[in-house]
Design a protein around this nucleic acid. Sequence first.
DNA 1: AATTGAGGTGAACAATTTGTAAAGAGTTGG
DNA 2: CCAACTCTTTACAAATTGTTCACCTCAATT
Lengths: 228, 228
Amino acid sequence: MAVSVLIVEDDHNISELLQMYLEKEGYAVTVAVDGGQGLAKFRAIKPDLVLLDVMMPVMDGWSVCKAIRAEAQTPVIMLTAKGETDDKVAGLKTGADDYITKPFEMKEVLARIEAVLRRASGVSVEKKARRLLFDKLIIDMDAFELTVDGRKVDTPPKEMELLYYLASSPNRVYTRNQLLDEVWGFDYFGDSRTVDVHVKRLREKLEGVSDKWSLKTVWGVGYKFEVL
Amino acid sequence: MAVSVLIVEDDHNISELLQMYLEKEGYAVTVAVDGGQGLAKFRAIKPDLVLLDVMMPVMDGWSVCKAIRAEAQTPVIMLTAKGETDDKVAGLKTGADDYITKPFEMKEVLARIEAVLRRASGVSVEKKARRLLFDKLIIDMDAFELTVDGRKVDTPPKEMELLYYLASSPNRVYTRNQLLDEVWGFDYFGDSRTVDVHVKRLREKLEGVSDKWSLKTVWGVGYKFEVL
DNA sequence: AATTGAGGTGAACAATTTGTAAAGAGTTGG
DNA sequence: CCAACTCTTTACAAATTGTTCACCTCAATT
């Protein structure tokens, strides 16, 4: 059963962006464009979590939050512009579980949603392994360390994330565009050859280390982390 | 089984704030709005701990405390307004276990509750170590002291907490935003570069002391306390 | 074998991130 | 209320990474 999220946000650009990203992650997303509609949809669908913009005409986020709190314990994450809220106590009183300051990164939003859901419990959020082990290779995203043949190898963020992503699904091929979407973010607009360069640099660090795995090119398609 | 706390407080703002924070920490909270109700609820639910406002109409905190003491050893923490210092003397007689002066910080309340519960024992509060030991480094959050190479080093609160947080999970990277959330509080809205400055000042105190650990920057990600 | 398009590679350049100093704001204790 | 201390912000230089581009190599197809 999918986890459902209600987005209450009057800025169409933002809500669309959120919706796209969350749906990609497997959430069932519903969007409301103002406080009143938000409350109505909240009652109708009883979502597992609410993303709530603070600044909205007519009925602002705090009021909606308070109303939601009056009838359910559904976790609420407020979307606030920086400096928008001076009164932290007021915020806490209306019962928000977390805040996200605009402008935000999608990765942060996802992380917070998972954190809040985990805290609120009841809803289980399955977690991916943050540490991948292969022959003479450890990809540790918690420590953000790449260990090759027992030695730590300094590796920049993009390379780490790319390798982690590929190695998370061994033997599966990804096109450059898929990798750009997943590792760089779907809002990235750049040359797909950028992927090649990162693969090349990863290969410099990884080649000849083990014959049990390798970063392979699938001609005309993309790349994969092949494990024998 | 959750630890239960009874809050006896006539100021609705304060009790609500306390309740919210404590519930977030996993406590089962019950609120009473005056002394009489407090005593009734105390008898009904037999909480593990009582937070008791001193200034209340009709039946004040001291009377309630005395009544509680007459029938149980349940730990009691008194909430006193600043300037009611004479209350401390009275408090000793009525058997309160601790005092918190308004206005208080939630962190302090949580710390005291845990301290009192630990002292009173019987109730087990699984706790993180408040004292971390590394080569030539002692981070003691109970004494709030940092000992580097055998010498006490005067260290401001934020730096202590930041170091403690990082050192609590050695080798794990935290982003600036995660650190702001955990150390500064999730309702903190400020520049993430503030973290950098605190790290810098910590480094001044810590650099060159031991080769077994260090405060490392993970470029593009954040910071970690690395232990070899 | 030639052709064509995809991938490899090195280097330049651009963009981002971090270290640091210093100033100003905020707090605390006497 | 002042003095001392702490925290936050800001600015700029330095370091590092990310991106693009040109050119070369290689694979598949005819």
